[in-house]
């Protein structure tokens, strides 16, 4: 099992850390160099964490857990009107992005009202392509509970709901977790109290992801998603020219490739790993609901019978 961590330290000798993680079979997902400081988002095999931590100490850097690394989250607002945008939705999306996840904002067509809200089939399928959905709801307890009874129909991924009242998760139907103190906020969230609320949201989402990771570890994917990402980046030249943000977006159980499905799916299916297997033997290459992108879902060990 791979552990998502963030390394912060000096630029000097940081390549020792990169090489160590790669030698251990981990992956470097992102490298940000800011003047003399470097931030690495990486996945490290859980059994080798102590070696990495020791190396960090030697380099006078710091290793912290970043459970949102390598995930794709949908932040869902009932609509794209002044009521929800720009402040609250963008604040949440931006904050989760800073924590290492890729966020996509979804505005529903008919998400308003507690009695009349509904999710279209397209929206449902689009949201289901993510690792987790954050539904950003409003101020009133009654509305949040009533709305939750019908709005999340057909969504199979974990659902985190935000709102103003302090409710227990059990009180909100169909939700995996609930985070209070949000509500419909029409100003930029920058006070220390509001930032703590955002921290709490990240913490709750991290806990949900940890549970999902434990579930996945019981029947691990035949190929680790970061491995798929690495092979695509090495073997599909056109991905370098893609101007989309994160052309290969990592998810917990696969990746999203931002190339047109019709043109590239055969090439990607036939990518060969050094172990001798091709992509289509270890993963499903599917058309994505987002534009005409490609969605790759790794097959579990129980289906393939082997892990590479």
């Amino acid at each position: 099992m791979l552990e998502p961590v963030m390394y912060t330290g000096g630029v000097y000798k940081h390549n020792h850390m990169v090489e160590l993680v790669e030698d251990l079979g981990g992956y470097i997902l992102q490298k940000n160099v800011m003047q003399t400081e470097v931030v690495l988002l990486m996945l490290v095999p859980i059994n080798d964490m102590t070696i990495v931590e020791e190396k960090a100490k030697e380099l006078l850097g710091k290793v912290t857990r970043a459970p949102l690394t390598g995930t794709e989250i949908a932040t869902v607002a009932p609509t794209l009107a002044y009521h929800h945008l720009p402040h609250l939705d963008c604040d949440v999306a931006e904050f989760l992005r800073k924590q290492g996840s890729k966020t996509n904002m979804v505005g529903l067509a008919r998400g308003v009202g507690k009695r009349i809200c509904q999710l279209t089939a397209y929206e449902r399928d689009l949201i289901n392509e993510h690792d987790l959905a954050v539904f950003i709801l409003g101020n009133y307890e009654h509305c949040i509970i009533e709305k939750s009874k019908r709005l999340y129909e057909g969504i199979e991924i974990p659902i985190v709901v935000t709102g103003a009242p302090q409710l227990r998760t059990e009180d909100v139907p169909n939700a995996t977790a609930y985070v209070g103190n949000f509500g419909r906020i029409l100003h930029h969230m920058r006070h220390s109290e509001e930032l703590r609320t955002l921290d709490k949201l990240a913490e709750v989402i991290g806990a949900v992801f940890d549970n999902v990771r434990k579930e996945i570890a019981k029947d691990p994917p035949a190929v680790a998603p970061p491995r798929i990402k690495k092979e695509i980046e090495e073997q599909v030249q056109e991905i370098i020219d893609s101007l989309h943000p994160l052309p290969v977006t990592l998810q917990m159980n696969g990746v999203r490739v931002k190339l047109p499905y019709e043109e590239y799916h055969e090439q990607i299916e036939n990518i060969r790993f050094v172990e001798g297997v091709t992509m289509k033997e270890v993963a499903r290459v599917l058309p994505s609901k987002m534009r005409n992108f490609i969605l790759i879902r790794a097959l579990p060990k129980s289906e393939t019978g082997f892990v590479i």
């Binding site: 009932p78 609509t79 009107a81 002044y82 009521h83 308003v112 009202g113 507690k114 009695r115 009349i116 809200c117 409003g138 509305c143 029409l186």
Partner: peptide
């Protein structure tokens, strides 16, 4: 009408 009243209240 466009910002304060909850959106669902049509």
């Amino acid at each position: 009408a466009l910002r304060i009243i909850p959106e669902g209240f049509r």
